[in-house]
């Protein structure tokens, strides 16, 4: 059964994406959580295919997507324009933003409450 909200992590580094995933999973055990890190070859960068897969594997109806740097965001945008899932790219501090969203989703909060707590974490 699908859930209303989930979190996606997109990082330039595979271990970084997985590390943040681990951190969030400890507290947000029931939040749909997927991640994509590094290029197809496992080098530093962004992978369209990996991000697309993380979107498809995320069981939420609406995905909050967090990123670390430049191309992770632009690649997220490309993916979001080319698939029909509802994806919200959030310009927040990567770890703190993703953590905040994950635990609020885990606690069954409404979108309004989630968005309100993310607002002060916006970095641009």
């Amino acid at each position: 059964m699908s859930k209303p909200f989930g979190v996606l992590l997109a990082s330039h580094v595979e271990e970084l994406a997985f590390g943040v995933y681990k951190l969030l999973k400890e507290s947000a055990t029931n939040t749909p959580l997927t991640y994509a890190g590094g290029t197809d070859e496992g080098n530093i960068g962004s992978s369209f295919d990996k991000i697309m897969q993380a979107v498809e594997e995320n069981e939420a109806d609406h995905i909050y997507a967090f990123y670390d740097l430049g191309s992770a965001k632009m690649t997220l945008e490309m993916v979001s324009e080319m698939c029909d899932k509802s994806i919200e790219i959030v310009d927040c501090a990567f770890i703190e933003g993703a953590f905040t969203a994950s635990v609020l989703i885990n606690g069954g909060n409404e979108k309004e409450a989630i968005d309100k707590q993310l607002t002060p974490l916006k970095i641009k």
Binding site: G45, S46, F48, S71, M74, M78
Partner: peptide, 15 residues
């Protein structure tokens, strides 16, 4: 370009 570049120039040239 979008699939294989891996950096910001991929989405930029791709778009």
């Amino acid at each position: 370009m979008v699939s294989k570049v891996g950096g910001a120039s991929g989405p930029l040239y791709g778009t």
